[in-house]
Design a protein around this nucleic acid. Structure first.
Lengths: 204, 204
DNA sequence: ACAAGCATGTAACGTGTTACATGATTTT
DNA sequence: AAAATCATGTAACACGTTACATGCTTGT
């Protein structure tokens, strides 16, 4: 019989959401609602979460002593919890930030999975699918580029020790990624059209 | 009181693994072990799964009547299950393949999350982190390019109606993606080094 | 008065990972 | 004989989504 690993199991304990929250609260005190806005606006190009995941995590981090909250009133009755990071939380966050991670597994991508199965696609659907994807990617790129044009850092490059610099580089990365997606799709479409003309695939 | 949605809940019912399996088995009959090899070799650049997820899914698809298996012997005693797709399975797979999907949410990326928090990083860690990531990405690109050089389709471009073509375009996409990652990291490193020289950030 | 947005939570379920568990066959 | 690979499964848990649920505040 093999030696068994007694003691509690490990299992998927990256807790990345935990560190995303700590990092944001480390910048300034925030409510859960404020955090949600960050996730849906600034972090959306590399992380996201629903509020149903966020609130329980905030409770957990409070129990772990990494954040604390004070209840503040909005108007007469509406209570909201303003969270701030503790010294322990700051320590834990900075140690995560300094850790060198191995490359993550390649992210899953449904469109590429379908592209992999292109030979099973009905001939008349192939170009339709690629164009549909391309249109959506182009639309997204337009939005990212508009955000970049309004970005304070892009307008006035200065000190990289500012939250603006982090925001700027990930936005630049998102734009580069989207341009590459568009390049790839465009090349695929060209190849497919050429094959069509040369009768390298059956009638539609 | 609001109108409630009675009937069963929906909740995360993409079942993409299901279609990945159907697509592979649609090409030819395979065992669970064979499928795992596909996931870790050919599909690894856009989908992945552990065998602990695969085997239960195969059982589920069998119960749903989308695949069937026949037990074959390997040697004297070792039984393996050779799965093939049913007509119903083929129908379900093709209908998934033809469906036009909205853009997925941007995939999560731990490194970009850390990059977003660059202002909180210890000055002497910043370049170390970016170089570490760059080295890993370069290593991965080398492997992808080696795979491409040996790819049958790349050597002899012909009919796009072949499983080889799907394999080829997703591999090309993976290479383009990795080159862009490398470009992005290289640009970031250059900017950071320039800022260092110009004393745009504190001493390390 | 109404709509939009602020604010916080829970329930149920689907998806994905690590570890546990076992045994046969092939290659060195 | 040992190691690598073939082959299949389950248990426990972590992570993530959709829907359910409630109530206040601000702007029009």
């Amino acid at each position: 019989m093999k030696a068994k690993c007694l003691g509690k199991v490990a299992a998927g304990k990256m807790r990345t959401l935990k560190y995303a929250i700590l990092g944001l609260i480390n910048r300034k005190a925030m409510t859960g609602y404020d955090l949600m806005k960050e996730f849906t606006i600034d972090l959306v190009n590399f992380w996201h979460a629903q509020h149903s995941q966020l609130y329980p995590e905030l409770k957990k981090l409070t129990n772990e002593g990494l954040i604390t909250f004070e209840t503040v009133l909005q108007g007469e009755k509406l209570e909201k919890k303003l969270y701030s990071i503790t010294d322990e939380g700051k320590k834990v966050f900075l140690s995560w930030l300094a850790k060198q991670d191995p490359l993550e597994p390649t992210p899953k991508d449904i469109f590429r999975l379908k592209a992999y199965f292109i030979e099973s696609m009905r001939k008349e659907d192939i170009l339709k699918q690629f164009h549909y994807q391309l249109d959506q990617r182009k639309e997204k790129l337009v939005k990212l580029e508009a955000t970049m044009r309004q970005h304070p850092y892009a307008k006035n490059i200065a000190d990289i020790i500012s939250p603006l610099y982090g925001d700027y580089i990930v936005l630049k990365g998102a734009i580069m990624r989207e341009r590459t997606n568009i390049d790839w799709l465009t090349q695929c479409i060209k190849e497919i059209e050429k094959a069509k003309k040369n009768c390298f695939y059956g009638s539609s």
